[in-house]
Design a protein around this nucleic acid. Structure first.
Length: 477
DNA sequence: GAGTTTGAAACT
DNA sequence: CAGTTTCAAACTC
């Protein structure tokens, strides 16, 4: 996801197709992330080890590294902010703020070379601190400013990246540029950072959300003895290799979307808006798949036959049946609660099915499949509903609102329709204007934060889809 | 904020 | 592959 987003952004920014510089055969990481490394090799010192470099101080006098650190803290999306012009020109010409900023952002991601499964995923996003929706605002605003949206959150379909779903929501609100802007900002902000709290894993295991997401830990993290930092890059990479040696897909997206909205390949009744499913399935015993302990639930996807859960009541879709058909009080309650609390979950977007406008040259699914997702979804409690992205295509003509409204929509009624969605303060917001925020170093700086026309946004989305790299198919053989 | 619960990840 | 342990997030109080 990230990969593609990066590409998108790039194109969106420069008007060029990033892919033109990529073979398209390499993973996102190798393409995007590797680049930073390669380039970084030359500037590595300058960035991490050479404090003597120019542009060390920000306007506020804060050491650039600190500031960079904050920037790095942002999620992949930021990282993906790839701008050739920035790299080629800025680095040379001393546009420190810009180039460093972008570079730093990229560095924020771990460079996971050619991992079979691909590299970063925000699966992570798993945690993106709660609130991040896949492509949420970040998709729009980020793309607008040439940054890559945070994919983690999103779910990638076999042949495309899925946009966040818009759950419910007043059409009028969605159509209101101002409201859309506000919502997007919120989402983007929430996507900005993800904080872990690891104490014993050194942030070098998948227990660590940052590590699992392919991100370096940053200040907002409360981890202890953290090795998941650029200065320990070698350790991080080595650890990752080890993990991947055990499980090549360890860093692959956990949630994938199936193209069939009615029933997925697993055969279960699919109640999930975009037919997304957890790749491996959960193994819940006591949570009934109604709490975030459940990865499926957390990702906002229904359980599938691949799940080994017991007493599944996943409000997004149970192995057998879904909450909609349930009159069960507990289940309904769970649905509502879930929907209102976090359902922002996966913002799953479909690749043209729900949004024909977004249709992208659809590659052979059997060859390009890959789903990218992440817990991110769980962090965008409001993104779904507040984000107009899902229905973005509608803005361009489609009037079929129902098509972009997940069945869970009804469960989202509790979410404020107008105004800025409430997002827990503890959740890290992007500091668009204040990168040095104490709580959230991750900055989603948005130089050109103007809310461009929806057409531009969607154009970006198309680019994203097109840019989706080939990932191993998670689809069942 | 501390303690408990939970299930994924890691280990054996 | 199954059972157990470790871990950190989610949750409860």
């Amino acid at each position: 996801m990230l990969t593609m987003n990066s590409s998108i952004i790039h194109e969106n920014t420069d008007g060029r197709d990033w892919r033109t510089t990529n073979s398209g055969t390499t993973s996102f990481i190798s393409n995007i992330l590797q680049f930073p490394l390669d380039k970084a090799n030359n500037s590595e010192n300058a960035e991490f080890g050479d404090p003597s470099g120019s542009c060390k101080q920000s306007e506020s006098g804060e050491p650039v590294m600190d500031r960079m650190h904050g920037i790095l803290s942002t999620c992949l999306p930021d990282e993906l902010v790839v701008n050739d012009s920035g790299l080629k020109k800025d680095d040379k010409e001393g546009n420190c703020n810009e180039s460093n900023h972008q570079f730093s952002i990229r560095r924020r991601c771990l460079v996971f070379e050619k991992s079979p499964g691909f590299g970063l995923h925000l699966n992570s996003l798993p945690n993106i601190p709660k609130g991040q929706s896949p492509l949420s605002k970040s998709t729009l605003s980020s793309t607008n400013r040439g940054e890559v949206p945070d994919d983690n959150k999103g779910v990638v379909t076999e042949n495309s990246y899925e946009m966040p779903a818009t759950f419910g929501g007043n059409e009028a609100d969605h159509n209101s540029p101002e409201k859309k802007r506000q919502k997007f900002e919120l989402v983007e902000e929430s996507v900005a950072c993800k904080r872990c709290n690891c104490k014993r894993s050194k942030c070098l295991k998948l227990y660590c959300d940052c590590f699992a997401a392919g991100l370096y830990c940053i200040e907002p993290c409360s981890c202890q003895d953290c090795f998941n930092k650029p200065i320990h890059e070698n350790v991080v990479l080595e650890t990752r290799r080890q993990i991947e040696s055990r499980n090549p897909l360890a860093f692959a997206p956990k949630v994938i979307r199936t193209t069939n909205g009615v029933s997925d390949s697993m055969g279960e009744i699919n109640k999930t808006p975009a037919s997304a499913r957890h790749k491996r399935g959960c193994n819940c015993k006591r949570s009934s798949c109604l709490k975030k302990y459940c990865e499926c639930f957390q990702a906002g996807v229904g359980c599938s036959l691949s799940c080994r859960c017991e007493g599944c009541k996943n409000s997004f879709g149970r192995k057998e049946g879904g909450c909609e058909s349930e009159s069960d009080g507990d289940n309904l309650e769970a649905c509502e609660k879930n929907a209102s609390e976090k359902s922002s979950h996966d913002t799953v977007i479909s690749n043209g099915q729900e949004h024909p406008d977004l249709s992208v040259p659809s590659p052979d699914i059997s060859r390009l499949p890959f789903a990218y997702s992440g817990k991110l979804a769980a962090f965008f409690p409001h993104s779904i509903k507040s984000s107009p992205q899902l229905c973005g295509t509608q803005e361009q003509g489609s009037s079929d609102t129902s098509s972009c409204k997940p069945k869970l929509e009804s469960n989202l009624d509790g979410i404020p329709e107008s105004g800025t969605p409430e997002i827990p303060k503890h959740k890290c917001f992007t500091l668009v204007s204040n990168p040095t925020s104490p709580n959230c170093k991750g900055v989603f700086s948005t130089p050109n934060h103007d809310s461009t026309s929806s057409s531009t946004k969607w154009r970006s989305r198309k680019l994203i889809l097109r840019s989706v790299p080939s990932f191993p198919s998670f689809s069942p053989p």
